[in-house]
Design a protein around this nucleic acid. Structure first.
Lengths: 348, 348
DNA sequence: ATGCCGTTCCAAAGCGCTTTGACAAATGCA
DNA sequence: TGCATTTGTCAAAGCGCTTTGGAACGGCAT
């Protein structure tokens, strides 16, 4: 069933039917009723490709999903997607997901943009000096960045959380508790959030004259396994750290396993704060020792980003171009005072 | 840059350029070279919407993502998607993801199909007597089901794992170890895999004259929290079960927390086997007591499904219509002989 | 020279929709 | 009653591509 058939069925022109459907004022209310009724009966749906060709609007948001045979699926990606979806469904929008090799994200993004399949682009997994940024700006297609790109001029629309602030606050809390030997379990080194969290932590430490040596930082993908390995390395150090900052509850899962296996008591002999993206299957309060966290819901970010993107496409703006969400520091049992014997020992 | 402009630039007709691009034989090799060169220089990409309108092919696979404000994002979904993507990227295919309320999956699927946006549909989260099946069959669009629908005529293309067999084998192992008091931590009751796993388990038990009372089964979403709650309930029973089957490593995560908090030793006082979808962030060998599992990679299923779907669209078939993958039963430390005092006690 | 082929290219139709510009019919106003 | 306006409808163009049905051209045999 297409427009032509439907209009013949109704004895109307395609124009009139089309207008009736799209809410144009110049069509008689009774005619519109008749059309709507016929649509219901025939199950007619406009062909999206044709609609797109005619209007240039696609009703969809494009995003690149990094993927490769050796690439870990990322729980954070799924959670974020759920948020996007939750909002998109309210506006009858959908996503076009283009899977792409992580090394060819720029290319994939460009192909997606000029394919005519999408009205706007969404970009995540930002890196320092991200090469996608200049490309996006040259594209004359609305886009929105989740995160930021350290080192790039901040003249693009983004939504980010205050990663520096989060880890600055977390480090300060541990400093106040008397800790002096710190370590960081971070995400991949080139990613923006990892850079900023590291910076926030270092800022807090340096206020107390402490530094964070390279071997007290671990930069890995965010899996529990890698968290465990890295933590084991920390624990074998002669002067082992007593205060750990951790970029994800997933990493923390592994890290805590290492702590347990070393026979150490979390929250007593060793303190840990993790960043909590509010993954529903990994709640910090459900850890055997509930986790102190910096919290910001990834899913909520997804909802908000979809809102802004769809609003921009529908020209319902204006939206703030740049949003920076504060994180919450939630203290639970995984943090405690530095162990006695370490209290007055010099820094790392 | 569109075809017309490009052809004018080259002094050729649109026809010739189009044919050169699409590998038709009736165009001179040198002309083709010239065209390809121009494409490279101008960055020309055919408009997908126009291509689709002209050919009817979209180069994309549609899927419905269940989502709602109160709906948990499902790690399994993300992992599966990664597999789909891994294969799709090899063929320059993409997905159209239509988020939809779980109560309106039939409608969402239909809308997706007749939107003209996709060439084929993928369907998961199958239920018993799934209403989507008759709809899909009436649609004259290729589709592929992940899982099956208990109670429906199996005359549709699917890929599934042998859920009955998996839990039958798992239960048998525990029976051989002398266990008599069983419990099941399952996924949502209406989902096909949950029905079949339950059936497989019950089949094994009844061979030994044992049954599985309703209060020894828990059907919940697959989150660790719900796994913990359910397990706590089991553990408070006067004759608490010593053998647990569990539909996901995520549920197991919570269940084991409950076991630990009750001060019980996993693999000694209580045995547990979980189904392992090979989620990269939740490896059974990394649990504090490594988990005995029935294993089948969700991601591999995603790859295979994309293969079949894309092959069908490109008419590269024939593929087997129905595949049933066996699972592996991998014994680790979370299973052991039934505790002494229970060995000769009558069944549940 | 003529006819026949194979090669290489082109003009035009069509995919299903939106939108412009125009045209009758109905209405308002003097 | 005559004229200008508004209302409801339509025909046709156009979105960018693929594909059908020729056409022009040269080479070859007759």
């Amino acid at each position: 069933m297409n427009l032509k058939q439907l209009s013949e069925l109704l004895g109307l022109s395609q124009t009139t039917v089309s207008r009736a459907l799209n809410g144009y004022p110049e069509v008689n209310e009774t005619t519109r009723e008749r059309v709507l009724q016929a649509v219901k009966e025939t199950g007619y749906r406009p062909n999206k490709a044709a609609q797109r060709l005619a209007t240039g609007k696609a009703g969809s948001i494009g995003l690149v999903m990094p993927t490769a045979p050796d690439h870990y699926s990322d729980v954070h990606f799924g959670e974020f997607l759920t948020g996007l979806g939750e909002e998109a469904v309210r506006h009858d929008f959908h996503f076009v997901i283009m899977p792409a090799d992580p090394n060819d994200e720029v290319g994939a993004l460009r192909r997606l943009a000029i394919s005519g399949n999408v009205d706007a682009l969404f970009v995540a997994y930002m890196r320092g000096h991200d090469p996608r940024l200049p490309m996006l700006k040259s594209l004359s297609m609305p886009f929105l960045v989740h995160g930021r790109s350290f080192g790039s001029e901040p003249d693009y629309p983004y939504l980010d959380i205050d990663n520096e602030g989060a880890f600055y606050d977390a480090a300060r809390l541990l400093l106040q508790l008397g800790h002096t030997r710190f370590a960081l379990l971070n995400g991949p080194e080139h990613l923006d959030f990892a850079i900023r969290r590291k910076n926030g932590m270092i800022a807090a430490l340096s206020e107390r004259g402490l530094s964070l040596p390279d071997d007290h930082m671990s930069h890995t993908s965010m899996t529990d396994e890698l968290g465990q390995t890295a933590m084991e390395r920390f624990l074998q150090m002669p002067q082992r750290p007593t205060a750990i900052l951790c970029s994800s509850t997933v990493l923390a899962l592994g890290a805590i396993r290492a702590v347990n296996q070393a026979g150490l008591k979390l929250g007593e002999e060793i303190s840990l704060i993790a960043h909590d993206d509010v993954l529903p299957h990994l709640k910090p309060e459900n850890f055997s020792v509930p986790l102190t966290t910096t919290r910001s819901s990834l899913r909520a970010a997804g909802v908000r980003i979809a809102q802004r993107l769809i609003g921009t496409i529908k020209q319902e703006g204006p939206f703030p171009e740049q949003e920076l969400w504060k994180t919450e520091l939630i203290v639970r049992a995984s943090t405690g005072p530095a162990p006695r014997q370490d209290q007055n020992v010099g820094g790392v």
